[in-house]
């Protein structure tokens, strides 16, 4: 990664947890260009217009693909389209993520559209971290993730936006066939005047399909968050969504859950809880010797862990 400067390397570490080219398949995208790319025996990474096509061979086991995106040029705006084809019975981890460093006057924007075709009985773990830094203008991230799960497929998505992203509008969609299961874990923290919107929509078409969605967020300062969590059940299926938010300062959260049960054997549950940190929690940690500030950060760090 000789072509990366210090700031870019740090962003890479934050969003993808790597500081040098990893073993296995990867693509590094920096300011709109693929600066380094490698396929592996089982995972093919090839360019397409505005993005990548990533194909994982059937039966591939325990491989990881890294596809981090870095923007360090002020005013850079991009739309990236990545398509993933995960072969039957494969078991892979995809580490995505985008870091924006903006020290200039213009907004930097990354719109990422990821589509996952997960084959029969295949397993995919998708990890996406979004992060913004730098004293400059806006950092905007608008990710779209679509999951199509074949029979018996399993997908786990960890979607994390921790600090520094001024504006986000994230859309996550999933369609599940028989016996497929998806787990979505979203974590978000907004500060200052940031605004975040997240729409998660799961359609349970298959018999015995399962969706489990947990969104945890913290809204601080003057920031505002909006969540719409939707589950549709069209068969014998189970869906659970949970939206948990902590408010600090003048933070605001709007959570709009909806459940659409269209089959008599669909079992759908939604839980939502929004509020400031419970005073008993603060009392307890302070009685163990923490100051109020330390107690608050302990509770928030745990909550978003």
């Amino acid at each position: 990664m000789k072509t990366l400067d210090q700031i870019e390397k740090e962003l890479m570490q934050t969003v993808a947890g790597i500081h040098e080219p990893p073993a296995g398949a990867y693509n590094f995208r920096v300011n709109g260009k693929s600066v380094d790319r490698q396929s592996s025996k089982n995972i093919n990474v090839e360019p397409q217009e505005n993005g990548l096509i990533i194909t994982v061979k059937a039966d591939t086991q325990d491989e990881v693909v890294h596809i981090p995106v870095i923007i360090s040029k002020t005013g850079h705006k991009e739309v990236v389209i990545n398509d993933f084809y995960i072969g039957d019975n494969a078991d892979v981890t995809i580490v995505a993520g985008c870091g924006i460093y903006n020290c200039g006057p213009e907004n930097s924007v990354h719109d990422g559209i990821h589509t996952f075709h997960v084959g029969k009985n295949a397993k995919v773990r998708y990890i996406e971290k979004h992060y913004g830094a730098g004293p400059g203008a806006g950092k905007t991230l608008n990710p779209v993730s679509k999951f199509y799960l074949e029979k018996g497929a399993y997908a786990e998505a960890e979607l994390e936006q921790i600090r520094g992203v001024d504006s986000t509008n994230r859309i996550t969609e999933a369609e599940l066939k028989d016996g497929a299961k998806i787990l979505i874990r979203e974590k978000m923290l907004t500060q200052g005047r940031q605004h975040a919107k997240s729409h998660i929509e799961t359609i349970l078409n298959g018999k015995n399909s399962v969706a489990d969605i947990v969104s945890r967020s913290v809204a601080t300062d003057e920031s505002r968050q909006e969540f719409t969590l939707h589950i549709e059940g069209n068969n014998l299926c189970r869906g659970h969504s949970e939206c948990d938010a902590i408010l600090q300062d003048n933070g605001a959260v709007l959570a709009t859950p909806s459940l659409d049960a269209k089959h008599v054997d669909a079992q759908l549950i939604h839980e939502a809880a929004i509020g400031k940190i419970a005073s008993e929690q603060l009392d307890k940690l302070m009685s163990l010797g923490l100051t109020q500030i330390q107690a608050e950060s302990q509770i928030i760090n745990g909550f978003l862990k």
Binding site: R216, D244, A278, E280, Q281, D283, K284, L285, L288, G289, L290, Q298, I299, N301, G302, F303, L304, K305
Partner: peptide, 15 residues
Amino acid sequence: PHFKGVTVKDLLQIS
């Protein structure tokens, strides 16, 4: 009280 994301060990460590 309950704490989401805080383990028993975390709590004992703080104590």
